[in-house]
C-alpha cells in the first residue's frame, strides 16, 4: 500500500460485485469436444476463462456474467449455454 493523498483503487476481483449472479445462462463445457484452441479465452470479455495450451479451459463461475460469447465463438460447439437452476 502506498501513501496516497487521494483515494486510489487497486486491481481486485469483484469490483462490480459477485457478477456471476447476473447470469441467466451458464456456459457448460464439453471437454471431449474441446480442441484447445484458446478462442474462448481470447474473446471472453470478463477474463473468467483460464487457459494454457495443453491444459483444458476452466471457467470462473463466481464472476462469469453468462454473456455466451465463448459458446457462440467456439469452433467445435464444445460450450453450451444452459439455463441456470431455478430460472
Amino acid at each position: 500500500m502506498g501513501l496516497e493523498l487521494v483515494p486510489v483503487s487497486r486491481p481486485a476481483p469483484g469490483s462490480g460485485g459477485i457478477t456471476g449472479t447476473w447470469r441467466t445462462l451458464r456456459p457448460v463445457v464439453d471437454l471431449k469436444k474441446c480442441i484447445d484452441c484458446g478462442i474462448c479465452w481470447l474473446y471472453c470479455p470478463e477474463s473468467v476463462i483460464d487457459w494454457e495450451k495443453g491444459q483444458k479451459i476452466k471457467i470462473d463461475y463466481t464472476y462469469c456474467k453468462g454473456c455466451g460469447i465463448c459458446a457462440h465463438e467456439c469452433p467445435t460447439k464444445a460450450i453450451e449455454m444452459a439455463p441456470e437452476a431455478g430460472l
Binding site: 501513501l3 496516497e4 487521494v6 483503487s9
Partner: peptide, 19 residues
C-alpha cells in the same frame, strides 16, 4: 514524484473510479 500518488508503468493503480 510519488505524491499525491505514484503513477508509473507496470504499477497498476487507479485514481478516480467510482467509490
Amino acid at each position: 514524484p510519488d505524491l499525491p500518488l505514484r503513477l508509473r508503468p507496470g504499477e497498476p493503480i487507479t485514481m478516480g473510479n467510482i467509490p
